[in-house]
């Protein structure tokens, strides 16, 4: 290791953010991702590590109302952010309608990608309402709910058990219920 390989200052730092409505103060190695901060430092293991490289979507959480891959984000870069994880969306005793719909439509099997799918599903409905276009949007100025829109927008969340078409049914039902 040469001098050029040595960090010039501290390699850890303090960060404060809000997770599921609760303020969290942490001092973390700069290398800790938001995902690992949630799982290993805050004990919220609902967000999953499937690939740790932004290739599967299992780690999807909401930051300031938007879904991101928490594995590709450093925790220290989230100063002041509001983070919602699957644990903040609903609990076993108080399910969110999307969670309830996933159960009834069997939108999962092994369950590992499921928290990420549900975070994405909720975000997808919001993104469509906001008029954010997608790859399958025919007219960039008119974004409307459709099966194709859901399929495309959910494509950043892999499910190897292959429950996609059941998830679509669940998402469709939640949308219709609103």
């Amino acid at each position: 290791m040469t001098i050029h390989d040595m960090p010039k200052g501290r390699t850890d730092g303090a960060v404060r953010f809000v997770v599921n409505g609760k303020t969290v103060n942490l001092t973390l190695d700069h290398r800790v991702t938001l995902l690992d901060a949630l799982r290993e430092h805050i004990g919220l293991t609902g967000s999953k590590k499937g690939c740790d490289h932004g290739q599967c979507g299992a780690c999807t959480v909401m930051v300031n109302g938007r879904r991101i891959n928490s594995c590709l984000s450093l925790a220290v870069m989230h100063e002041g952010d509001e983070i919602t994880t699957i644990e903040g969306i609903g609990t076993p005793d108080a399910l969110d309608p999307m969670q309830d719909a996933f159960i009834r439509h069997d939108g999962y099997q092994c369950g590992y990608c499921t928290p990420g799918q549900i975070c994405s599903a909720k975000a997808v409905l919001e993104e469509i309402r906001q008029g954010i276009p997608s790859h399958v949007t025919a007219d960039l100025d008119h974004v409307t709910f459709s099966d194709a829109e859901v399929r495309e927008r959910m494509s950043g969340n892999l499910c190897r058990c292959g429950a996609y078409s059941n998830m679509l049914n669940a998402i469709r039902e939640v949308e219709a219920g609103k």
């Binding site: 609902g46 999953k48 996933f102 159960i103 999962y108 369950g111």
Partner: peptide, 15 residues
């Protein structure tokens, strides 16, 4: 429906 559904959909099932 799956009996463990509430755990899996809320992130409460421990892997």
């Amino acid at each position: 429906s799956r009996v463990e559904g509430r755990l899996k959909t809320t992130g409460a099932a421990p892997y």
